[in-house]
């Protein structure tokens, strides 16, 4: 893994900034923990086989190859479609049966649902396409 210096330096800077962001809004040790976890992920990322490694691209050395991009696209599509169907269902439910406006809090849960579906799809597709 030669020629990755600019990748590691840039990720160290991002980790410090990320940790500092948490430290300002929380305790100092939370900032250190978050920064360390972020940097640990950046150290691990080139070795887990999730990304293709191109040291010649410097700070953007990690790229999705076409299989990873296809998985990402399908997972995003699944998350979007299911979230929109659930949203449509809830709007119909609140407009037809509950006869009230849909509470704004459902959007938070819809966002969480979308994220969960995205990662579940990503996990399942990675298993199916390997």
């Amino acid at each position: 893994m030669t020629g990755m210096k600019s990748y590691y330096v840039s990720r160290a800077i991002i980790s410090v900034a990320f940790g500092a962001l948490f430290a300002t809004g929380s305790t100092w040790w939370t900032g250190i923990l978050v920064g360390a976890l972020a940097f640990a992920w950046f150290l691990l990322a080139p070795h887990i086989g999730r990304y293709s490694v191109h040291p010649e691209f410097g700070i953007t050395a990690l790229r999705r190859d076409e299989r990873a991009q296809a998985i990402n696209d399908k997972a995003a599509r699944n998350a979007f479609i299911i979230s929109m169907l659930v949203l449509g269902g809830m709007i119909v439910y609140f407009g037809t049966f509950a006869l009230t406006s849909a509470p704004i809090a459902i959007f938070k849960w819809l966002l969480i649902l979308g994220v969960l579906i995205y990662y579940a799809s990503d996990f399942w597709l990675r298993k199916a396409l390997s």
Partner: peptide, 22 residues
């Protein structure tokens, strides 16, 4: 994988015919 710039997982998936390459 290194020569063509993809991950080893992509080579495995192509060999097993689970992924159709471009």
């Amino acid at each position: 994988a290194g020569v063509v710039g993809v991950t080893r997982q992509t080579i495995i998936a192509i060999e097993k015919e689970k992924f159709v390459p471009s």
